[in-house]
Design a binder for these strands. Structure first.
Lengths: 151, 151
DNA sequence: TATTGTTATACTCTATAACTATA
DNA sequence: TATAGTTATAGAGTATAACAATA
């Protein structure tokens, strides 16, 4: 009997993943034209508002491990978009910030994010957009999606 | 000026990704107890309904390249959950199907999918669940999310 | 030549764990 | 010992491209 096994499409998780993946990939293609990945953009955007910031704080804010942050920072440093700076008071501490070149790119990348958002959700009524936002935000709160992974 | 650069949280894409990632990771943890990954489960579920099936057809249905299907099938074959069979009429053609062991696992994994779905979306009203489903399904249609990637 | 499938290679994203330097 | 950060390693997921066998 197959009747007792629901289709993949029976789950909200399935539809969520389809749409989310599409939106992310569409955005990835856009920023690839600037030689930047989605995760790199996210870090740059956070740095743009909160600067300079310790890698460990960034890990908390972005919900990633310190190792992942370190590797991501490496890539951005190699592209001269981010700079590391040692703390003068604590020999262990580092801080990250955008280089002038990195900072200059942020508004440009933000425009691509706007473009992507517009293109992906243009077909929704403004009411549906608001509803979708409300439901997703509620889910983030209820599912407690803010915690850094295990260390 | 920072005022002209919207926060990451301004975008529906951001919230979508947060929730979608959480749901997928929660499911990944569940099926990991059965030594199966999310992509492996998806292939097993499709095979359960459509069996036997050619790798190329599976690639179309799952929106993956043939190379990716081949690699995924390799893993499932190594776990004795899927079997390859050569076509008797076309020397190039292969077909994939679940082994009896693989087929027996499907209802079990499906139960984990139900569990995950319930846990992740239990907090939503049934109206919100229906609305979310409608909006996401519409998006899949409007964004034309069905096409296989480039070959 | 075109098609089916596999293999080789590469890259993103992320994790865990070991390690270094400092506190 | 505890903490900050980096590095090493691994693995999922996916892509592109080259390839072998067959049609």
């Amino acid at each position: 009997m197959t009747a007792d096994v629901p289709e993949l499409t029976a789950h909200l998780g399935y539809w969520l993943r389809q749409v989310s993946n599409h939106v992310s990939h569409a955005f990835a293609r856009r920023v690839a034209a600037r030689d930047v990945t989605v995760a790199e953009w996210a870090m740059m955007r956070v740095l743009y508002s909160t600067q300079p910031v310790a890698p460990s704080q960034l890990a908390d804010e972005m919900g990633m491990t310190r190792g992942a942050i370190s590797k991501l920072a490496d890539r951005l440093v190699a592209k001269s978009l981010v700079a590391r700076q040692a703390s003068s008071t604590d020999g262990r501490a580092q801080s990250l910030r955008l280089t002038p070149q990195g900072a200059r790119m942020v508004p440009d990348l933000a425009a691509l994010a706007e473009e992507n958002e517009a293109e992906c959700f243009a077909h929704l009524s403004s009411e549906d957009r608001a509803t979708l936002r409300r439901i997703l935000k509620e889910a983030v709160v209820r599912l407690d999606i803010t915690t850094t992974p295990m260390e």
